[in-house]
């Protein structure tokens, strides 16, 4: 970013309190990533490596979400305008949700939801029944 930027960017800062130093040292050992004192941006190869690392991180996140977030995909598919592709997405989402359910992989989500609902009903007061927010 320009040196004359009028406002600081939160993305422009690197902040490592001392208390994290040991954790960071351990993470460096585990990940094998240990940038030198020089700014990593200066190195073309390092920039390409960072780009690949970022791409893989996002890819992993997307794949995990696609695999384990079937109910949300089903809910999204149900909002699509009727068409052949949206019908295929809907059916795939249905099949995938049922398969996940049968494999027991939906159980963690349900457990989290149950705990959250217990919190909602905390103090013996049921929250008012309100319609969902407009999509």
């Amino acid at each position: 970013m320009s040196e004359e930027s009028h406002l600081e960017s939160p993305l422009g800062e690197e902040f490592e309190p001392d208390s994290f130093a040991r954790m960071v040292a351990w993470l460096r050992r585990v990940s094998g990533y240990d940038p030198g004192a020089e700014d990593e941006e200066e190195d073309e190869l390092a920039a390409a490596r960072t780009q690949r690392w970022a791409g893989r991180s996002i890819l992993f996140a997307a794949v995990i979400l696609a695999l384990l977030n079937a109910p949300s995909i089903r809910s999204w598919a149900s909002t699509l305008d009727p068409s052949q592709p949206s019908e295929i997405i809907r059916k795939l989402a249905d099949v995938w949700t049922d398969s996940m359910d049968q494999a027991g992989l939906e159980e963690p989500r349900r457990a989290i939801r149950r705990a959250y609902d217990n919190w909602k009903a905390w103090g013996g007061v049921e929250p008012a029944q309100t319609p969902p927010a407009a999509p």
């Binding site: 990940s31 094998g32 893989r56 996002i58 992993f60």
Partner: peptide, 10 residues
């Protein structure tokens, strides 16, 4: 930033 990409993504 020190995490391997699968760990950060996960």
């Amino acid at each position: 930033k020190y995490l391997p990409s699968p760990a950060l993504g996960a």
